[in-house]
């Protein structure tokens, strides 16, 4: 026996770990095996598939941008425990992350539907209708995805060294300058990690979207809804669209990999 032997990974972790990998990877491989490769190119280049992909990319990116603009400040406020009732607020803003998405959709209808508490006012006063619109899709995606950005960023804001901010303040920097020049660059990788998580969640959003925004091609039918709709008529189309969505997600994850890993490890 020597010291190096003892460092070998224990069997009771390797076995379950291998099962976990197989469980997560097998369905993805099965999807690729069932793909209608001969007709793949023609399926994914149809106008309806392109519409769904464009809609998905546009709505998920806008949802991520909105989540960043309002979610990053909230994450900072929560990390600094500035707001009264920080613990309660933190718990509340994470609820959408735990809710079944279809429940989020029902909740959004209760709030922003045309008979909803907020939506009723918008509809009666301005004639604004959010359900069944692309704006409604963005709303649903933001609601479901923003908590991912908030919890990632809050962790980052908590763990970084506040003395940098203090030093900048003593050197006469304004709060805005400190936030822009010190705080944001220091949590940069976490912002990218949080935004990537948030975007991936928004891109995959299904339940809240179909419940709140409905399902119409070109307006509210994002890729996941197109996959679901295609399943009712043509399985090959559903599989091809799924693979396209999988490819887009993997491509972005690979592109962000370095940042994502560092950010995830930090938070």
């Amino acid at each position: 026996m020597n010291g190096r032997r003892a460092a070998a990974p224990p069997w009771f972790l390797i076995g379950p770990g291998v099962i976990a990998v197989a469980f997560l990877v097998v369905p993805l491989i099965a999807l690729l095996l069932q793909a209608p490769w001969e007709s793949f190119a023609s399926i994914i280049s149809t106008p309806s598939a392109m519409d769904a992909l464009r809609l998905s990319l546009v709505t998920s990116l806008i949802a991520t941008a909105i989540a960043a603009v309002i979610g990053i400040p909230l994450a900072w406020l929560l990390a600094r425990e500035i707001l009264p009732g920080t613990r309660l607020i933190r718990a509340l803003v994470i609820v959408p992350l735990l809710l079944p998405p279809v429940v989020s959709g029902v909740a959004l209808l209760a709030a922003f539907g045309r008979r909803g508490s907020v939506g009723g006012f918008l509809f009666d006063t301005f004639g604004i209708q959010l359900p069944f619109t692309t704006t409604g899709v963005i709303l649903a995606e933001t609601f479901v995805a923003m908590p991912f950005l908030i919890i990632t960023l809050e962790g980052a804001f908590r763990s970084f060294d506040r003395r940098f901010e203090d030093a900048a303040v003593t050197l006469g920097a304004s709060p805005w300058t400190v936030f822009r020049r010190i705080t944001i660059p220091l949590v940069g990788p976490s912002i990218i990690a949080g935004a990537a998580l948030c975007w991936a969640r928004a891109l995959g959003e299904f339940g809240a979207t179909i419940t709140f925004a409905g399902n119409f091609p070109g307006v509210t039918q994002t890729m996941p809804l197109a996959v679901y709709t295609a399943l009712e008529s043509d399985r090959d189309i559903a599989i091809a669209l799924s693979i396209l969505l999988l490819a887009v997600s993997v491509a972005v994850l690979v592109a962000l990999r370095g940042n994502y890993m560092r950010g995830a490890a930090r938070s």
Partner: peptide, 21 residues
């Protein structure tokens, strides 16, 4: 030009009953 294409007739009925459409 409908606003939504449901995959289950009861979902159409549900949207009507909830006054969403």
């Amino acid at each position: 030009k409908p606003v939504t294409l449901e995959l289950d007739v009861r979902d159409v009925l549900g949207r009507v009953m909830a006054d969403e459409v």
